[in-house]
Computed example of a mutant assay.
Amino acid sequence: MFEVVVDKEKCVGCEECVGSCPAGVFEIVDGKADPVNEDECLGCETCVEVCESDAITVTES
């Protein structure tokens, strides 16, 4: 299981994580990325790689 955290202060709502996540973890809520399907996270960290604002962290829990 993985914990996905989005730093709302850093997130610019570019939707890169939404489009790149193979598990569909993210949705844009109020203009910011939100890991609404965190339980589906595969731990691949694709979202971390595409996030230009370094707003996403993925840790194994």
Rank of each mutant, 00 (worst) to 15 (best):
T46H: 04
K10T: 02
C17E: 06
L42T: 12
V50S: 02
V50F: 02
V58C: 14
S20E: 08
K8L: 11
C17A: 05
V12D: 15
C51L: 04
C51S: 08
E9K: 06
V4D: 05
P35T: 01
D30T: 02
V29F: 00
K32D: 03
V12F: 14
V29P: 07
S53C: 07
V48T: 11
N37V: 10
M1I: 12
G13S: 07
C21Q: 08
P22F: 08
C11T: 02
V5G: 11
C11L: 00
G43M: 14
E16V: 01
A23C: 01
C44P: 02
V58N: 14
K10N: 07
L42M: 11
E45P: 04
I28R: 04
G13W: 09
E38A: 13
V36G: 09
V58M: 12
T59E: 12
V50H: 03
A23Y: 02
D54I: 00
I56E: 14
E52T: 15
I28K: 05
V5F: 08
G31K: 10
V29G: 00
C14P: 00
K8R: 09
K32T: 12
V29I: 12
G13T: 02
C47Y: 09
V25A: 11
G31C: 12
D34K: 00
K8W: 01
I28Y: 01
C51H: 07
K8T: 10
E38K: 05
C41P: 12
M1D: 15
